[in-house]
Design a protein around this nucleic acid. Structure first.
Length: 541
RNA sequence: GGCCCCGUCGUCUAGUGGUUAGGACACAUGCCUUUCACGCAUGCAGCACGGGUUCGACUCCCGUCGGGGUCACCA
């Protein structure tokens, strides 16, 4: 699937003098791949593996981005290296601080701790691109001194002519260097006319990248037009800034979305011009929409929302997903360990993860499978953690207060126990357990129609009310026996007794065991609800 | 349009020339059961298409189709 065997490390000698060059002559004749030592040097054993995730502080964390971050984190943790967070704020947006906080909160929630970056600092800071101007300056100076870049005085209009022509002829647009006379150049300089700095792409070379996920990818430099690395205003551009940052931060493995695959080649040229050692690259395929291979689009978030597809991390937090479950699911989206294991604990993920087994084709998001994994994780969650996880949802609905008093705590514990495996995400405690905490019952119309609007039901409910009134003690075993006896005595099927009683006391057609419900709701509340149900039936009938 | 990446059940995947193409989620049916959920059992369902190469292709090569990216003084 991917290039090379063994650990997910590129052949280090591909970084020799012209790292990514496909050398046609000598290598072929000598056979083999240059004087490569065999077995190849495993860089992960020579130096610390350093990976990074560089979100821009706008909007929310996209689920695909979270997966990319996770793969970076996993790789660093597996090799005992460092995971670095870098804020891509070159646009200098206004609410950066707030946005960064949200991102950091997201990472904290996921348990993806970072070794260097915002708040924790580190030896390669600053970790905000907007604060790294001097680093870019130094790199620019070197490229200028070495004659790798030139001043581009072209105007939008001039370039647009070429661009439009290219489009018309159905060709790829490539910047064509405009040669100015020395006199013109001198004049521009004297005028202080603004210019962009453009990288001079060498012609006629074939670049080869040994991508850790995609395998060997070759690209002709003739396909790359001279590209701008610094805008007229002095603003460095992504293809340049991110390379400088990765070098400065000693990133060993660039693991990122595959949309950057083509960008890698200009970046390789910059790397080479800087005389820097290149990191290994791994391009991760995109995440597709559920049930299709179409890429998830930021534009369609509203449509996804309607379909119940959660696209942003905070939506999963709001739903009450378990971070471990999401991490487990995301790790398996595009990666597998073998032909059978689906459930992975975090430590196991760190141990077993490898770029080598990351699929080179896109994977589509499967909310159903995530939900199943979530359920599996919830089953394994200790009661105390479930209480802690569910509490905020109850508090948000005004059904409990934080901190919990002892009585409410034991009730919450009992409710969660009664809910059992039915509670998959924490918000379920509200969705299916509201009637345990609220004074008011909301009768579900479908349940009422199916179980209560039947001949003889009001009469039976009156008898059951009397039964509840006199059952002593009012506990699970006694209630169960009483209801059984009642059914037997009146010659009714259990279902015909239990189901109406459930709807009358909980308002719902589905839920935990009836006797759990009766006990937890309490005798008085049950009787009041039965009365309310009877009144409703008689009024509506 | 040029260039680059990708194509196994609906979905996530195992598979590296010879397998009854395996597992999981979802779905369907049955069992359990007061409902639902859980659990158990069974079932449905796949190598995009067309050419080669080969004794033999899901596996290798080419083409077509389809999906994605890139071709910015965005990231």
């Amino acid at each position: 699937m991917t290039a090379g065997g063994g650990d997910p490390i590129v052949d280090p000698n591909s970084f020799a003098s012209k790292p990514f060059e496909r050398s046609s002559g000598p290598r072929e004749r000598r056979g083999g791949r240059l004087a490569v030592p065999w077995p190849p040097i495993d860089r992960s054993r020579l130096m610390s593996v350093r990976t990074r995730f560089a979100p821009s502080p706008t909007g929310h964390l996209h689920i695909g981005g979270v997966r990319t971050a996770l793969f970076n984190w996993l790789l660093a943790r597996k090799h005992g290296g460092q995971f670095i967070l870098r804020i891509d704020d070159t646009d200098q947006e206004r609410h950066v601080d707030e946005a960064v906080q949200k991102i950091l909160d997201g990472f904290r929630w996921l348990g993806l701790n970072w070794d260097e970056g915002p708040e924790v600092g580190g030896p390669c800071g600053p970790y905000y691109q907007s604060q790294r101007q001097d680093r870019y300056r130094a790199a620019i100076d070197k490229l200028v001194a070495d004659g790798k870049v030139y001043r581009d005085y072209s105007t939008d209009a001039e370039r647009n002519v070429d661009r439009d022509a290219a489009k018309k002829d159905k060709r790829a647009y490539r910047f064509r260097r405009i040669e100015y006379s020395d006199a013109d150049l001198a004049r521009f300089e004297a005028e202080g006319r603004p210019y962009a700095l453009r990288f001079e792409v060498p012609s006629g070379r074939t670049l080869v990248l040994n991508d850790l996920v995609k395998g060997e990818v070759t690209f002709a430099t003739d396909e790359i037009g001279d590209f701008v690395i610094v805008r007229p205003g002095g603003q460095p551009l992504y293809n340049f800034a991110s390379v400088v940052d990765d070098v400065d931060m000693k990133i060993t493995h660039v693991v990122r979305a595959e949309e950057h695959l083509s960008n890698t080649f200009p970046q390789i040229l910059v790397l080479e011009a800087l005389g820097a050692e290149a990191p290994a690259f791994a391009h991760i395929p995109y995440v597709a929409e559920p049930g299709s291979h179409a890429k998830m689009s930021k534009r369609k978030t509203e449509e996804y929302e309607k379909r119940g597809v959660l696209v942003f991390l905070h939506q999963y937090v709001q739903k009450g997903y378990l971070p471990d479950a999401l991490v487990n699911y995301l790790s398996r989206l595009g990666w597998s360990y073998d032909d059978s294991q689906e459930l992975f604990k975090r430590a196991e993920l760190i141990e077993k993860f490898s770029l080598e087994r990351v699929n080179s084709s896109p994977a589509s998001l499967d909310p159903d499978k995530l939900f199943w994994i979530e359920g599996e994780w919830m089953k394994e969650t200790p009661l105390a953690d479930k209480v802690a996880g569910a509490l905020p949802f109850l508090v948000a609905e005004g059904l409990a207060s934080d901190p919990l008093d002892d009585a409410t705590r034991s009730k919450l514990e009992a409710v969660i126990l009664a809910l059992g495996d039915r509670m998959k995400v924490f918000s379920d405690v509200v969705k299916m357990g509201r009637f345990f905490f609220a004074d008011e019952v909301a009768f579900d119309p479908d349940a009422v129609k199916k179980r209560l609007r039947k001949p003889g039901v009001p009469e039976m409910l009156r008898e059951l009310d009397a039964l509840l009134a006199e059952t002593e003690p009012y506990d699970l075993a006694t209630l169960e026996k009483a209801v059984h006896d009642y059914a037997e005595k009146t010659g009714r099927k259990m279902g015909d007794v239990v189901n109406p009683l459930r709807v009358a006391t909980t308002g719902q057609g589905v839920g935990p065991g009836l006797y759990d419900c009766l006990v937890l709701v309490g005798r008085e509340a049950c009787r009041a609800r039965i009365a309310q149900a009877i009144a409703m039936l008689e009024a509506g009938a």
